[in-house]
């Protein structure tokens, strides 16, 4: 919390480092490795995959990776706000399933033009509920959103009766544009991801709200002492998260014009993995949208590379877990090094 990894401009090695005369260089190397370890590992991965399969760096493969990462990426953009504010959102996976099921069902009932805003409203209500519990009632975000993960799953199954949801007339709807369309040859999911990243990146970096998100996550007490209404900031972070989830649900539903109840299952962990890979701290106060995008792409390329070298799809669940552990460990190692130097 004291020291975020260098995401704010102008981070230099401060007096603290300079004061430690003994073992400084060794410590600095350690910190560098801890901070850049993921990037180094990523480069090694790329080299290995390219040697193993020359299709890995082909343009169509790269485009394919970005496209298939877009849904995860959109979700990660919203969760980045929550993580920087010092909280977690584990409910995004099942919330995305909910969005996809609801919008597909309403598509046939009231038409896509009404189904989309209705689905957004319902998903935002779930996000607002998260935000109310964590922000205003000050409940632990891990407990709240873990509970919501389960509760929303139950809600989705109740809504669908446990059945897969499909659009009846797949030929006669424009609904597929969000998942399948292209504009100027670029797939729409990539455009949505890029546009949303640009907008939310600006919100986070350039607006008063973004500044308050960093302050609340960096030191919530000091933020309160500065007149910031912490609960409100946290509330809007969850709202932002659910807005992104609704968008991702729309993209998911549109891509296949049908959905299972469990389409988003496990995505909450991949989202967190991507954010941590980008270098945000789970302690809050650090991270950027740009870094999250990088994290999403690293995760996408690693998973793609594993497929290309011939590993089974299911292996990536294990690999994702390994990546999360590695990233969290590096985050803690970097932090611990700094904490120790502050005390001793």
């Amino acid at each position: 919390m004291t020291d975020a990894p260098g995401d704010r401009p102008g981070r230099t090695s401060g007096p603290r480092q300079e004061e430690e005369a003994t073992g400084m260089s060794k410590e600095q190397i350690g910190r560098f490795l801890a901070r850049q370890g993921i990037l180094i590992a990523f480069v090694l991965f790329i080299i290995g995959f390219t040697l193993a399969n020359n299709r890995f760096l082909a343009p169509d493969n790269i485009m394919g990776v970005i496209r298939s990462s877009a849904i995860l990426g959109v979700m990660a953009l919203g969760v980045t706000f929550v993580v920087i504010s010092g909280n977690l959102d584990l409910s995004v996976g099942s919330m995305m399933s909910f969005s996809a099921i609801v919008v597909l069902d309403l598509h046939d009932a009231i038409g896509p033009g009404l189904a989309i805003p209705a689905m957004f409203a319902m998903t935002l209500a779930l996000g607002a509920f998260n935000g109310f519990l964590v922000g205003y009632l000050k409940l632990n975000s891990l407990i709240v959103t873990l509970g919501m993960l389960s509760a929303i799953h139950g809600l989705t199954l109740t809504y669908s009766g446990g059945k897969n949801m499909d659009i009846a007339d797949k030929e006669g709807t424009w609904f597929g544009v969000f998942g399948q369309g292209t504009i100027l040859g670029i797939p729409v999911p990539i455009l949505i991801f890029a546009l949303l990243a640009a907008i939310l990146g600006t919100v986070l970096a350039k607006t008063p709200f973004g500044r308050k998100v960093y302050a609340v996550g960096g030191n919530g007490v000091a933020a309160t002492f500065s007149g910031i209404r912490r609960a409100r900031v946290v509330f809007f972070c969850y709202l932002m998260s659910s807005l992104c989830v609704a968008t991702a649900g729309l993209m998911q539903a549109s891509r296949s014009l049908g959905s299972q109840n469990t389409v988003g299952q496990g995505l909450e962990l991949e989202v967190l993995a991507a954010i941590i890979l980008g270098g945000a701290s789970l302690m809050g106060g650090s991270g950027t949208i740009f870094k999250t995008v990088i994290g999403v792409l690293i995760l996408g390329f690693i998973q793609n590379g594993l497929l290309l070298v011939g590993l089974q799809f299911y292996v990536q669940y294990v690999v994702t877990w390994i990546i999360i552990i590695l990233a969290v460990w590096l985050d803690i190692a970097a932090k611990r090094g700094r904490l120790l130097s502050a005390i001793a």
């Binding site: 919390m1 102008g10 350039k206 302050a215 000091a222």
Partner: peptide
């Protein structure tokens, strides 16, 4: 350290924190 400052933030951002809503040009800081 715990009440006065967000230690991981830079000097300027800490100093303007209470009035950040008023220091705007359009929607931006």
């Amino acid at each position: 350290k715990t009440q006065g400052l967000v230690l991981g933030m830079n000097c300027r951002d800490n100093m303007t924190l209470p009035q950040i809503d008023d220091l705007t040009a359009g929607p931006f800081v």
